[in-house]
Every structure is written in C-alpha cells, then in structure tokens.
Design a protein around this nucleic acid. Structure first.
Length: 609
DNA sequence: ATTAGGG
DNA sequence: CCCTAAT
C-alpha cells in the first residue's frame, strides 16, 4: 500500500534563500522556514520521493476543498489527508526553529483529531518518533501553502535519510554502557529507524534508553530484550515491562488518548501523564517550546552528568551522616515513579524530537559538496604568557603566525627564570638511588620515603644549574592543523623531573586540589603549567604510582624507552600523599593486567609522564 | 577564575 | 594536553 503524505523540509535548501541578502536571509528564515514536500510512504514505512503525478494528485485533492487547511496545522493535515486518501502512512515532519511560538491548543487538536483517528491508529506501522510532536504542536501561524512547490529533488535528500526501523535487531541483553558509539548508532537506528550522527555517547544512551523503556527514566542502561519487548531492565529490582513496538507508535500514543477522550478515565490518564512528564499541562504551546528547545540544543541537551566531586561527596556525606537514611530512598522512589510512568502508551515528548534532521539540514545547506567548515586553530588560548608578551613587543610582525621560530624564541625567554628546568632528567634516570629503591613495609614507608624524597629533591636542586642550556632543545612542536591529516602534535611540554618534584611537594603542603595555590607558590617561575596542568599531572602521577605497585618489578628500570621515568621515591611519595588525601588508585581490581600494561604503554607513548 | 573529570 | 561542566 502506497500513500502520499507531506513532509516538511527546511527552506534553507531552497535557492531563493541564498539569493537574498544576509539580513533578509535571517528574516526569511524566521518567517518562511518550512516547506512541505510530498513523499510516498511505502507499506513498510519507508519514505520515497513522490512522483509528479502524486504531487498533482494531492494538489487536486486540496483544490477540491476536501482538505482546506493543509499547512495550518501539521497534525490536522495528516489526519485530513489520511482520512481521505490514505490507509497507512507516516508523517515525517520537522519544524525546526521556525514555526513561531503560537501553537494550537491541545483541545483544538483534540477535536480535530477525533474525526479521523479511528481508521488510522491501528494501521500506522511507524516508529518514527518525531510524529507526535507535530500533533501536539500544531501551529496555526506558520502557514505557507507550498505543497509541491519545491521539486522532488531536494526531497530525495531528506527521504534517503530515513530508514526502516528494525526492532528485531535488538535482542538479548544490551548494556549501553559497554557499547561503542558505533554500536549505539546501530541500536539507535534499529530502534528509531533513523541514522544519527550524534557522537555523544551520553546522548545516545539516553535516547535509546528512553526509546526502550518508553519513559524518561534513563537511570538504567542495561536491558534484556526478548521478542520485541524489553523484559528486564538491569540493576533494578522492579523491572518494568515496557512494550516497545506498539507503544512507541506516536500515532497511537497521542491518538489513543485523544480518541478515548470521552472516557473520563482516559482523560484523567492523559492529564496525569502530561503532568508527569513535564510541566506541560495546558496547551501545546508549552509542549512546543519545550520540544523546540530540545531540537536546538539537542546534542547538548544531555549534559554530561558529572559525578560529584570528592569535596562535594565529603561535605555531603558529613551532613548526611547525621540524617536518617530513609529520607533518601523515599525521595528516590517518589521521583522515580513519576518519571517512569507505568503506562506503556505514553510517549514522552522529549523523546519525540530526534536528531535526524539537523544533520540533513546541514548537508543541504552545504549542497553535499563536501565543503568543510573552516577550522580555526588556536595555537594558544587565553592570555599569553608574560614572556611571550615581552617577546611580542620586539617582534610584532609575528603575532599572527606563531611559527616555530617564535615559539622557540619565547621559550628561550621562558627558560631563563626557571633555569632549573634543565634536563636533569637524563641524570635522574641514571641515578642509582631510585633504581634500588626497595619496597618497604607500610609502617616505615612514610618516613623512609620522605627522607629519600627530600634527598632526591636536593639532588635535583643541585642539578638545576648544571646544564641550563639544553632546555627543551627541540620542543615547541606546536604544529598546526593540516588540511588533510588534521593536527599533528599540540604544544606539549614534557614535565621535567624537577617540576614533578615541585608538584609533589606542593601537594604535600597544600593538599590535593589546591592547584592554584601550588602553582602560585611552586610554579611561580614557570609561566606555563597552569593549575589544570598540575591537576592533570597529579592524576597521571597517581596512576603511575599505583600502577607500579602490583607490578613489583624493577621499578623504573623497566621502561627504558620511556621519555622520563619517574623515580620510585617520587612515586612512593605520590602514593603516600594520595593515601593521606584519600585518593585511591583507579581500577584497583578492575583492569589489573590488561589495563595496566596497555594504559601504561599508551601513557608513555603520549609523552606524558 | 578555579576545580574536577572525561577524552 | 584539550575540552567542558560546575562552582
């Protein structure tokens, strides 16, 4: 069964837009953002471009007056057409930033929908999630009846991005956390029948999770799927059973409610659901706004959920220790109940919008000609270092192009104040002291380590003035992006042993996290090394120090190829400090073997200490 | 601006 | 090292 429905496409792809001036353009985009085009909907839900005959056919249909309000309200349009002519079909509608904020109201929609939904609801096979919003967000304002006005050429581009959902691909246990982006993409496609280009894992997981559970509750990332149904959600006792395939049908979701609107029970249900899934209770306007926001900020929509910082945890835990623990659990269950409503027919609005479109838009605007957005590289961000500034005064012409010469020059300037930064590394690596550093029992470890550590530090200080000349002789490889191969190496500056020592000392004195303090005191002469750098370095040190522990081998000797082996005493000190600070080795038991060697190698290769 | 954490 | 979110 083939049908014809309308599809909106963004006007950005229309030539007339590009002809206008930029000012007009923006105006135009606002005023005339949506164009409808015709596509044929195959029985299986696929969209194919409509032929000219079909376009005319629909136009005739419209001219007949059988369906008068084609573009005034997306939701109604579909229903209208469907009612007259179509036995099955889907509407792929994408009203991007356009359709102003004036939307029809739910009640309006309800009455209009009542007429025709009966025939449709059982037949529409689609899983395409973006349909529902067109129902709920019918906009009476963005009407420009251009049915068939734009050729079917541009249509193809939009249609070819829609693929058939194949839920049968999803089987067995799915643990979203363990999946790669690519795998997530596949699931996404299987689930929504669309290809997404979003690489944000979190976002993908969330979408998929929402799609699978049919709820906003995305706390779970492991699912067991059997026979097209999610039968189990991981790590939750009350595994909710969500019927996926049918309940996901947006038509059914919206229509059911509307259709049965006469039943007071059903009405109530709808209200509850609306209330539950977000402050949109009264009219579609709210829904639309919410939804639109979701579109525009889509990729950023799900901001990375950061786990609380150590300090935060400490503070909170201190507070919470005095409180009753019951409170927390009750809170959780309460909110959890609301978020994941048990009604399987609810299609959360947030879920409706998806990311297929922005991608298409971008493609269209670029004409698919492979034009790349110019990449602006920042060789250095933020305030230039002081020494660099002084150098700039002398060589103003070089400002825009931080060539190697420039870089080298300011690094020489730079090296003067901290002449101790010589490559004492070399000597450090050969010093017998660390090589024979024994592993000592914990009881005497602290004292011993401290002693050795300071000893080392002294040694390091002595080395400071030995050879100041060979400073970072060939560093400054801040290569810029190449048009073909991307970036080479960024401005890396290897950490000298001395710097490491300073850092460790700083941590010892000020504690972990006081990076700015440490920087101020211990790295005053080092114009580079931001507090962030210190933090990063400490993290690496920490890792290194604990990574070495279980290995129990000949400490630093084993890595000869390593750029700068960190002497055992330092690592021991790091470990010691870490324990004092309550820092624990990452993955203490998790990845023991593979993780250790692999990561360690990788670290070395990266050039970080 | 600082800090934390992920990449 | 880079980036970003959060404070």
């Amino acid at each position: 069964m083939e049908t014809v429905v309308e599809v909106e496409v963004n006007a950005e792809s229309k030539p007339e837009v590009s002809k206008t001036s930029s000012a007009e353009k923006s105006l135009k985009l606002i005023a005339d953002p949506v164009v409808y085009q015709l596509v044929r909907v195959e029985g299986d839900g696929r969209l194919v471009p409509a032929t000219d005959e079909e376009v005319f056919e629909v136009e005739d249909l419209l001219d007949d007056g059988k369906c008068t309000r084609i573009l005034a309200d997306t939701g109604r349009d579909v229903e209208c057409i469907l009612n007259k002519k179509i036995s099955s079909g889907i509407l792929q509608s994408e009203n991007l930033e356009a359709c102003s904020d004036k939307s029809g109201e739910v009640l309006d929609l309800e009455t209009n929908s009542m007429k025709s939904n009966t025939q449709i609801q059982e037949r529409v096979p689609s899983l395409v999630p973006s349909t529902t919003d067109s129902h709920l967000s019918g906009s009476g304002e963005c009407s420009n009846s251009q049915v068939g006005a734009t050729g079917s050429e541009s249509l193809k581009s939009s249609a070819c991005n829609i693929s058939k959902p194949d839920f049968s691909k999803l089987k067995g246990e799915i643990c979203l956390n363990n999946l790669s982006v690519r795998e997530l993409h596949e699931i996404f496609r299987a689930l929504f029948g669309r290809v997404t280009t979003n690489k944000d894992k979190q976002w993908l997981k969330r979408r998929i999770s929402m799609g699978l559970t049919n709820s906003c509750d995305v706390s779970t990332t492991t699912f067991v799927i059997e026979d097209h149904k999610v039968v189990k959600k991981g790590k939750e006792e009350n595994s909710r059973i969500a019927e996926v395939k049918h309940s996901k049908n947006p038509f059914k979701g919206a229509m059911d409610k509307i259709c049965k609107g006469s039943s007071s029970v059903a009405k109530k249900e709808v209200e509850n659901q609306l209330n539950c899934s977000g402050k949109r209770t009264r009219n579609a306007n709210v829904v639309y706004d919410h939804d639109r926001k979701d579109v525009l900020t889509e990729s950023r929509a799900d901001k990375r959920v950061r786990k609380p910082t150590k300090r935060y945890i400490e503070e909170v835990s201190v507070e919470e220790s005095r409180e009753t623990s019951g409170k927390v659990t009750s809170k959780v269950t309460e909110s959890g109940h609301c978020q994941s409503s048990p009604q399987p027919s609810v299609q959360p609005i947030q879920n409706i919008r998806s990311d297929g479109r922005p991608f298409v838009m971008r493609q269209d605007s670029l004409g698919g000609s492979g034009i790349q957005i110019p990449y602006v590289s920042r060789v250095r961000r933020g305030r230039p270092r002081e020494n660099y500034m002084t150098f700039m005064k002398l060589q103003p012409s070089e400002v825009g192009t931080p060539s190697r010469v420039v870089k080298k020059a300011f690094e020489m300037c730079d090296s003067r104040p901290d002449s101790e930064e010589g490559n004492n590394i070399v000597k450090a690596g050969s010093s017998p002291e660390w090589v024979q550093q024994p592993l000592i029992s914990k009881s005497e470890k602290a004292e011993e380590n401290s002693e050795r550590f300071t000893e080392f530090a002294k040694d390091d200080l002595q080395l400071q003035h030995t050879d100041p000349s060979s400073y970072c002789s060939d560093d400054g490889i801040a290569t810029v992006p190449t048009a073909t191969g991307g970036m080479r190496r960024k401005h890396h500056r290897i950490w000298t042993l001395n710097e490491v020592v300073k850092l460790v000392e700083g941590v010892a004195r000020y504690g972990v996290g006081r990076w700015s303090e440490i920087k101020r005191v211990f790295f005053a002469s080092h114009s580079h090394r931001t507090s962030v750098d210190l933090k990063d370095k400490w993290r690496n040190l920490l890792r290194a120090s604990f990574a070495q522990l279980p290995a129990d081998k000949g400490v630093d000797n084993s890595r000869k190829n390593a750029s700068v082996p960190i002497p055992a005493p330092i690592l021991a000190r790091v470990r010691e400090l870490a324990e004092v600070e309550g820092q624990f080795p990452p993955n203490i038991s998790g990845v023991k073997f593979a993780g250790h060697s692999v990561r360690d190698v990788h670290e070395r290769r990266s050039g970080y200490l």
